[in-house]
């Protein structure tokens, strides 16, 4: 899987999550524009910890379905890193890419 493909997949999952939870519960509000560097979690992040769990699990499942793999994204390394690999979509992509490459 290419990094660009993975980024698209991650952004899709985030958008789907935001749509489902309708930020601010106002359906008429347009969804915020999300890019690789949008703060996802933490200070000024788009989602709270439960939202992050949902997104990470959806990404994990989408990848495992696509690649027929058994990747666990929220592993010990992810949890113990100084700067969270879930801070922005880009960082989530980089960390997940690492896991995908490691299984080869």
């Amino acid at each position: 899987m290419e990094r660009s493909q993975l980024l698209t997949l991650v952004l899709e999952q985030i958008e789907e999550h935001l749509q489902q939870t309708q930020i601010g519960n106002d359906a008429s509000q347009p969804l915020p524009k999300i890019s690789e560097d949008t703060p996802l979690y933490g200070k000024d992040g788009l989602v709270d910890s439960l939202g992050l769990v949902s997104i990470v699990l959806s990404v994990e499942q989408a990848i495992n379905d696509e690649l027929d793999s058994e990747i666990v994204i929220a592993d010990d390394r992810a949890m113990s890193q100084k700067s969270s690999p879930f801070g922005t979509p880009g960082r989530l992509v980089d960390y997940t890419m690492l896991l995908i490459n490691e299984r080869k």
Binding site: Q61, N64, D65, D68, E70, V72
Partner: peptide, 13 residues
């Protein structure tokens, strides 16, 4: 863990 992940891979598929 790997055995459980494999079990769920099959269930998912």
């Amino acid at each position: 863990q790997s055995s459980v992940l494999n079990l769920f891979k099959q269930i998912r598929k």
